[in-house]
């Protein structure tokens, strides 16, 4: 394959912790294999080369929090054939979206004093501003799942999520069901393929891979309401889904 036939890929980040890019770097050989097959023309964190021509694929990590970032996102959209969200900040609003503008102002006052005027807007999923072609969820993304999606992408396969919830990998790991132990968990309605990593670490699932298509959120709420307070349930749903439109439980 000649160089000019390679797909041109740009990787950009807005407000976030950059943990998803760290996961990408952690792909090591697979990342090298990917860089052989695509031309990474812009990646601030990974290389000096930063071109602003057309992109076949733009990966966006994080979510815009300033008007400048929103404009930049729109510019990238115009220049890109495929726009793919990378990580839950980009795909659902994620952690930055836990805080509302008003709440953020209170923290500004506390930290920087009342004179400081924040420019930040509410953190929203990228889809609030531009058309998105695919979402690679995860806080952080799972390197292996992302590699699978990249592979499908460059090999011309239709992009798809795995048709299982977090429960599949949780059961394979032989973990006890939190819900049966009367502890909150979003596993059954959450998109799987994360490897049930949080459950393996002793935590609940907060659904950072997004709510699975067709999930029965109402059924889960019925169960949660049996043993958890409304506030606790709200905490679980607002961890990553405060601003995503994927659920409506209020």
């Amino acid at each position: 394959m000649t160089n000019d036939k390679k797909l041109k890929l740009g990787l950009f980040d807005f407000t976030d912790c950059e943990g998803c890019q760290v996961e990408l770097v952690g792909l090591k050989e697979k990342l090298l294999a990917l860089s052989e097959r695509v031309d990474i023309v812009n990646w601030r964190l990974g290389q000096a080369k930063a071109q602003w021509e057309q992109f076949d694929i733009a990966l966006i990590e994080g979510t815009p929090l300033t008007p400048g970032e929103i404009d930049l996102l729109k510019i990238i959209r115009e220049k890109s054939r495929l726009l793919v969200g990378l990580g839950t900040c980009a795909t659902l609003g994620g952690i930055p979206a836990i805080l509302d503008k008003e709440e953020r102002q209170q923290w500004y006052n506390k930290i920087y004093g009342p004179e400081y005027e924040g420019r930040g807007v509410d953190a929203l999923p990228l889809s609030a501003y531009v058309k998105i072609d695919f979402l690679i969820h995860g806080c952080p993304i799972s390197g292996n799942e992302a590699a699978r999606i990249f592979s499908d992408l460059i090999n011309g396969k239709k992009l798809n999520y795995k048709d299982y919830s977090v429960c599949f990998e949780c059961k394979l790991a032989n973990l006890p069901c939190r819900l049966l132990e009367k502890k909150p968990c979003l596993g059954p309605i959450a998109q799987g393929a994360c490897g049930a990593i949080c459950l393996k670490g002793g935590s609940a699932c907060y659904g950072c891979f997004g709510i699975k298509e067709g999930a029965n959120v109402g059924a889960l709420l019925t169960i949660l309401n049996k043993f958890a307070s409304e506030e606790e349930i709200e905490n679980y749903f607002s961890m990553f889904h405060n601003k995503s439109k994927l659920y409506d439980h209020r």
Binding site: A33, S165, K171, P188
Partner: peptide
């Protein structure tokens, strides 16, 4: 919940799906 656990744990449920995985290189 549509979680599928019932079928995963069942010793007889045997429905499967196929998928092609392509190495990234």
């Amino acid at each position: 919940l549509g979680c599928g656990i019932c079928a995963y744990v069942c010793p007889i449920c045997h429905c499967f799906s196929m998928e092609d995985e392509i190495e990234i290189d």
